[in-house]
């Protein structure tokens, strides 16, 4: 039945003859081809998944801290601006002005390159291994898992916009009244209010936070698995933490544009 290609041109096996004493010719029966889907990759997929898990956890911790910092907006304009100023001057004179911010920026950028790069390689390997007949009819099942690429791209776009809007204050993305921080004063509060008073910016923020929730909820749970958590209790805790953290970050951030648009913050 099978048009078996025999041992000729057989790529070398990992551990020599597969089964000592076995009839190699018989083992070949029923084989259609000996070609693999790909040659042994230099960086295995499981290592790339660990890279994604670790960089993803860094992002998750960052957005958690970022969200808690954001909530200081409810403590008043002066306090919030002082916090923004403090972030720039913290640990002086051990660190230069904006020292901590730049450390964080470099770490995040390295994680971003690793995370996106690994995602691209894994995506293409997954497609190659699946082949031409795609898995269809999944419905709403594993919706978060299947939309990781989409939510990831939305988040990447949002990060670019967010930096242009509230960090660099680049025209087009930022509000017209944007004021950059000076050496002794930050205007984070005013910039934030001015930005969110534009309904389109607020709507994009809302969309990005929903994407963040979906991405984090699945990503953190996947990280638990990719970092090798097999214990029953550990997995249960990981599953719960992934969901709770994702939800907390989304809700904590979303109330800010809503408060601005409803006039609670101005």
């Amino acid at each position: 039945m099978a048009s078996s290609q025999t041992a000729a041109g057989h790529p070398s096996r990992a551990m020599g003859s597969a089964l000592p004493g076995a009839d190699d010719a018989a083992l070949e029966l029923g084989r259609v081809r000996d070609a693999r889907v790909r040659r042994a990759p230099r960086v295995p997929s499981w290592v790339l998944k660990v890279v994604m898990a670790l960089s993803g956890v860094v992002f998750a911790l960052y957005v958690l801290v970022h969200m808690i910092g954001n909530l200081k907006v409810f403590t008043g304009a002066d306090h919030f601006n002082e916090y923004a100023h403090w972030l720039r001057t913290v640990l002086q004179p051990f660190l230069p002005y904006e020292g901590l911010l730049w450390v964080v920026r470099v770490v995040l950028l390295v994680c971003l390159v690793a995370h996106v790069g690994a995602a691209g390689v894994l995506w293409s390997r997954g497609r190659a291994s699946r082949g031409t007949h795609r898995h269809q009819g999944l419905g709403l099942r594993n919706f978060t898992a299947r939309t990781m690429l989409v939510t990831g791209v939305v988040l990447l776009g949002f990060v670019v916009f967010h930096v242009l809007d509230l960090t660099t204050g680049t025209g087009g993305a930022a509000s017209t009244s944007f004021r950059a921080a000076t050496l002794d004063q930050a205007y984070a509060y005013e910039n934030l209010i001015a930005s969110f008073q534009r309904p389109v910016a607020a709507a994009f923020y809302l969309l990005a936070m929903i994407a963040l929730f979906l991405h984090l909820a699945h990503g953190l749970w996947a990280a638990v698995s990719d970092l090798g958590a097999t214990g029953r209790r550990l997995r249960a805790v990981g599953y719960a933490v992934a969901g709770v953290l994702a939800l907390a970050v989304m809700l904590g951030n979303i109330i800010i544009p809503i408060s601005v648009l409803t006039g609670l913050l101005s």
Binding site: R36, R38, P44, S45, K49, L122, R127, A145, M148
Partner: peptide
């Protein structure tokens, strides 16, 4: 090591779909 390196050549990465 042996099983993972063999697996890499034919099979894809896990995205935890759970299917």
């Amino acid at each position: 090591r042996a099983m993972l390196s063999e697996m890499e050549q034919d099979f894809g990465p896990c995205s935890l779909y759970g299917e």
